[in-house]
Design a protein around this nucleic acid. Structure first.
Lengths: 151, 151
DNA sequence: ATAATAAAAGACAAAAATGTCTTTTAATCG
DNA sequence: CGATTAAAAGACATTTTTGTCTTTTATTAT
């Protein structure tokens, strides 16, 4: 029996989203933000989020520079990046496509019992994640209307 | 990096739902259905689904009898049981309650950046799973309009 | 009662996800 | 240049989930 902990997104993905939102907030005006501050700021294991950002970095979703005054930052494209892009990069797109009860061949002509119901939900999730852009959250965070970690 | 395999429900839960739907279909008129037929019928590992049904059995969600002519079956209550009941029994209710990006203290007064959007999705999932009853699928399965496994 | 059947239970194994530590590479500054 | 800084990469450890195998218990039929 599972340890009772189901999530819509993987931990990797959760950390990835929080980190991207955090970086967006802290890398304005050409500034960069270091990995240890990111980890502290979003309450995640430092080396774990480092790995995640490496994946996003290789895909050009986040920018980074090594050495003194180095760190992570977002370019214009990164700020406009949708949450869906990040989810896809980290969790793949099974969340948007997969069958609700795990059948590979589930399709309109070969529907599983809850095919149609799940389809609607999946579309809503995709729409929501496609619609939300990383840069959007910066302002609300500044105003203290949103929180990325406890305290 | 995750092996790219995110699901809305755990495997345990997927198998559990498929098994319950299968049992509903094959335990009419006082009949019972054996674990090996269930495993074959829903395309799952036999001993794994056995464990899952034990959990559901202890909670009174599915019935079983040992020995010759024994097997699993559903009583009236079982047939009326919602998918949500099964999901809760196997995966807990984090799916309905948890924060989208994994913050424990996420709440209306302490919202994470995508709190409101996720809330709506969660409610829709819950509504869908509460609304669908195990017994509902039997007829469509009989008519060959639904499938629990490939072929 | 005994044998056969079938689920329950327990122990263990494999795979995947998550988390940690160390070494390497690249950039900057003195 | 050499020293320092910080990310990248690689190796490894832990936990959770998923899957398998064996033994036990309960029921039925002979």
């Amino acid at each position: 029996m599972p340890r009772i902990f189901v999530r819509m997104l993987s931990k990797t993905c959760e950390y990835g989203l929080r980190a991207m939102i955090f970086i967006a907030q802290h890398s304005r005006d050409g500034k960069r933000i270091g990995i240890s501050q990111i980890a502290e700021g979003i309450d995640s294991p430092e080396h774990f989020i480092a790995k995640i950002l490496q994946v996003l970095g290789r895909k050009g979703i986040v920018q980074s520079i090594k050495g003194p005054n180095g760190g992570f930052y977002l370019d214009e494209k990164g700020r406009k990046c949708s949450l869906a892009t990040i989810v896809r990069a980290l969790d793949g797109d099974d969340l948007f496509n997969g069958c609700g009860i795990g059948l590979r061949q589930c399709s309109p002509v070969h529907p599983c019992p809850i095919h149609d119901e799940f389809k609607k939900i999946r579309e809503d999730i995709e729409t929501m994640l496609e619609g939300a852009r990383i840069g959007e959250f910066t302002e609300k965070l500044d105003e203290g209307l949103l929180f990325l970690k406890r305290n």
